[in-house]
């Protein structure tokens, strides 16, 4: 998932709307509120535009040069007029400001009963995790990830209809920004701190998610999607989407391969012998490794298990100790499957 980028136009995100001229779906409580203000500002702008440009065009025609002997109006100012056109727009501005401020405050205050979901941003993918359903990151094809088409591997946020949801987000590298156009919500995702946003989805369907803070090469591919489900289906779907288990008829090594993909191991450990941040898995199993403290040992089941749970206890010479621990994230059965997978990389 990390290694291969799918161009956004090939990604399985749902179309925003049929026609480019149609308005966006109004799929959250905020979207409904915000669109009203949006329309209000638009009406004001159109009226102002007609007044200003109308006057300009009228003057442009009426007062075009007629002859060399034209005399022009000596007016230099008109205090009443000037005060008028300063004060009247100001009143409208105050209305817009207060309206926007009230909405913004509402958008910043999640209700107490909101469902918590955690979002992590990382160059260049989103990871969605549900505290109530510990498991793997959720993708757009729930269940057996091995059967997913590449285009279905989009990180997916499942939310129940008509329930407030609060996202708690952080980044592990640079600043990203989590944006759901159909919900009209957006918040920067900053390393070293948590940021929040909340919404109540009011329309079932699939909606795209974008990263809107420039974050490097594949910023454009840092997409995800939101799927809004009826409350009754939500829990079951999330459970299925996040659950990782050995499927019937699946080999341990194949299950290990799925875990290798889902947990992002590929970012550092290749399968083709190329050295990235960590050693390649190719030919790793059983090899005698020189450690950074000078000693050496064979990469057997126990060493691999220890390296997954306490990665920095015994580091192979030439690598830096920076792998995160997977203690508590992987079950014994899954570690075994990973070892089988590594064993298979000859």
């Amino acid at each position: 998932m990390i290694a291969t980028f799918i161009p956004p136009d090939k990604l399985g995100t749902p179309p925003m709307s049929e026609s480019p001229w149609a308005l966006l779906p109004t799929a959250s409580n905020h979207a409904a509120a915000l669109d009203t203000l949006y329309v209000f500002i638009t009406i004001l702008c159109v009226i102002s535009m007609i007044l200003i440009i109308g006057a300009q065009l009228y003057f442009m025609v009426k007062y075009r040069k007629r002859s060399d002997n034209d005399r022009t109006n000596p007016i230099t100012h008109n205090t009443k007029l000037e005060i008028g056109w300063s004060v009247i727009p100001s009143l409208f501005l105050i209305v817009i400001f207060v309206w926007g401020e009230v909405q913004f405050m509402d958008m910043s205050s999640p209700p107490a009963n909101a469902i918590d979901v955690r979002i992590t941003g990382q160059k260049w993918q989103w990871t969605v995790a549900y505290p109530q359903f510990p498991g793997g990151p959720s993708l757009s094809c729930p269940g057996n990830a091995a059967d997913c088409e590449p285009t279905e591997k989009t990180p997916t946020l499942y939310v129940p209809l008509n329930e407030p949801v609060r996202l708690t987000m952080n980044s592990v590298d640079v600043i990203h920004s989590f944006y759901i156009p159909a919900f009209r919500v957006k918040k920067d995702v900053v390393p070293g701190r948590y940021s929040n946003l909340w919404f109540t989805a009011i329309e079932e369907g699939e909606f795209p998610v974008f990263c809107t803070e420039y974050c490097g090469d594949e910023h454009s591919s840092m997409l995800a999607k939101v799927i809004v489900l009826p409350k009754s289906e939500w829990a079951a779907t999330v459970k299925k989407a996040t659950e990782l288990k050995l499927e019937e008829g699946e080999t341990m090594a194949h299950y290990g391969e799925r875990l290798y993909g889902i947990n992002g191991c590929a970012a550092c450990h290749t399968l083709d012998g190329e050295t990235k941040v960590g050693p390649s898995f190719k030919g790793l199993y059983g090899r005698t490794e020189q450690l950074s403290d000078g000693s050496s040992l064979a990469a057997d089941d126990n060493y691999i298990r220890e390296s997954i749970l306490e990665p920095n206890a015994k580091v192979v010479a030439g690598y830096s100790p920076q792998m995160p621990s997977f203690q508590g994230k992987l079950k014994d059965e899954q570690i075994t499957a990973l070892i089988e997978f590594i064993k298979a990389q000859k």
Binding site: L34, C45, S48, M49, I52, G100, E101, F104, K186, E213
Partner: peptide
């Protein structure tokens, strides 16, 4: 006069807190 008026008026959407959340970036 035309272009700058459009530029100025569309600034209103961006200075309004809530609509800017949608339109930012």
């Amino acid at each position: 006069l035309w272009t700058f008026t459009v530029g100025g008026l569309t600034g209103l959407y961006l200075s309004t807190l809530s609509t800017d959340v949608h339109l930012h970036d």
